[in-house]
Structures are given as C-alpha cells and as structure tokens.
Computed example of a mutant assay.
Amino acid sequence: MIRHDFTGRVALIIGGTSGLGLASARAFARAGASVALAARGEEKGREARAALEAEGARVIFLPTDVREGASVARAVEGTVMHFGRLDFAVNSAGQGGDMAPLESTNQDVWDDVMACNARGVWLAMRHEIPAMLATGGGAIVNISSIYGLAGRAAHHAYVASKHAVVGMTKSVALEYATRGIRVNALCAGATRTPAMRQAETYVPDLVRALVDEHPMGRMATEDEMASAVLWLCSDGAGFVTGVPLPVDGGFLAA
C-alpha cells in the first residue's frame, strides 16, 4: 500500500464497521488520520472501534442509520464535535437486495435498497460538505460498483442504486469544484469481503461465475480497494474530481 500522511486530518467512514468501509477506516488510521465510524449495528461498531484502538488508532463509533437525515446529521456533528473538523468522507453503507426477474421484483426490497444505497449517499453528502467547507474543503469517496457503470440481469435495485451514486458524484463534484471539495466514486469489482467469503460457502458457483467475469481471474483484496480510496483523498489526486474510478481487475475492459 502506498504510504500517505494524513496526520492531523479526520475521516468519517459511513458503513465503516465491515468490509470495504472498515478496510478504508483502518487504512486512514494507519496513515495518521483520526477516524469516525458510522453504522447501524452497535455491537459491530464497538468491535470495530476496539480493533482499531488496539492498533493505536484515534477512533470513535457513532450509531447511524444512513437512511435517516437526522441520524446522518448527528454522525457528522459528532465527528466534528469530537475531532474538531472533517477532511475526508467515505460513503460505504450499502446493501445488495434480491436477484429476481423484473416481474417478480419486490417493491419493498427496491425501496429499501434505494433508501440505503442512493438516498443514503445523498444525505451523507448534504451534511458532510458544509462541515468540510467550514475548514477549507475536503474529499469525498462514494462507494459505487462496477454495476454503477454496467448492467446485470435480474439485479435491478442494486444496479439502479449504484448508477445513482455515480450520477450524484458527478453532479456534486461539478457544484463544488471551485470550493475545495473533490467528490469521486470508487466502482469496485468483486472484492473478498466477509460477505463475499460467506457467499463462497453458500453459493460457490455464483461467486465463481462472478470472479470469472474479471479478466484477472480473482477477487480484489480489501486493502487494494482501500488503497484506491486513500489515493482519491490524497494530494496526489488533487486534480481528480467527478470520476467514477473502476477498480475491477479488467471487468469493464472486457
């Protein structure tokens, strides 16, 4: 992993207690940043905070329901109250929904996926950006997917929500391009998160077929994704905004 120095900076990771979010939180902490974890599950939040503290991180956990504006506002306010500022945000909370033919799609599932994956990112940016502007700017990474840039049969809610993340990222990046706020999206390919490892146990054929669609023939590691997140937040990416960055083992090139 490329070494970044974020000493004195503060990162808020929404959806930061597992998977790509937790990997990003750990990477920020190792780079010297103070980290706020925001997520729904309080037990997992306490466990994630304790794990990062054991590594020497300055970290807090803020119970947060990304679907609710007041809850997201409290997470941002709590981060600023505790650490004094907000420099980086990673909006990683998300869920997959069901895989079903269009005529069998459940509307409640659709609404729930869109509320978490799309409205949650919108709410997060609404509250993160004013906090960043108060101290001169910052960088936001919204976690999308290869399916924010491509389609997949029978996975309508997830694909639609991740396309929405890419669209919002571009629009908000344009709005704040001259105000010190950079906004990008990470379009992640198959990544060996705990959820994917669980899927390998229960639906191995489905996972193998997904991996086979990636020309590199493997899943990404969480650290590879976290490295991309940190780069997008770094000064090295200072002229990068509004970009849906594929980190996908060649998936979109095929």
Rank of each mutant, 00 (worst) to 15 (best):
S145L: 08
E200A: 12
G242C: 04
Y176I: 04
H214S: 10
M1P: 15
F61C: 08
G137M: 04
G45I: 02
E42P: 05
A33L: 02
G32I: 00
Q198W: 14
S71M: 07
L12T: 02
A209P: 09
G41V: 01
D235H: 06
L206W: 14
S104Y: 11
A226H: 04
A100N: 12
R58L: 06
V166F: 08
V207D: 04
A185M: 09
V80L: 08
A160S: 13
E42M: 11
G41M: 01
V141G: 00
W231M: 10
S145T: 05
A195C: 10
L20S: 09
I2A: 15
A33F: 03
T201A: 14
L62R: 08
A118L: 09
A25N: 02
R152D: 09
D205L: 13
S171H: 06
L37I: 05
T193C: 11
D87G: 09
A226Y: 05
L12P: 04
G180S: 11
E68Y: 05
T17L: 10
S144P: 10
Q95E: 14
A89L: 10
L245R: 06
N142G: 04
H163Y: 15
T193S: 15
M216V: 14
G69K: 05
W110G: 03
E103K: 14
D248R: 07
G84W: 10
L123Q: 00
L20H: 00
H4M: 12
L252W: 06
V159M: 12
E222T: 13
A39M: 03
V80K: 08
L86R: 04
T105G: 09
L20C: 11
D112T: 13
E213Y: 09
A153V: 13
T191H: 09
E128D: 06
I181S: 04
D212C: 11
T64W: 05
T105P: 02
L230V: 03
G151R: 12
G148A: 08
A177L: 12
A25C: 06
A39Q: 00
L123G: 00
P215I: 07
H163Q: 09
H214K: 10
V76F: 07
V80D: 03
W122C: 01
N117Y: 02
G97F: 05
A228L: 09
E53M: 12
T193V: 09
T135W: 05
S104V: 08
E175M: 12
G96W: 08
G136R: 11
L123R: 05
G15I: 02
L149A: 11
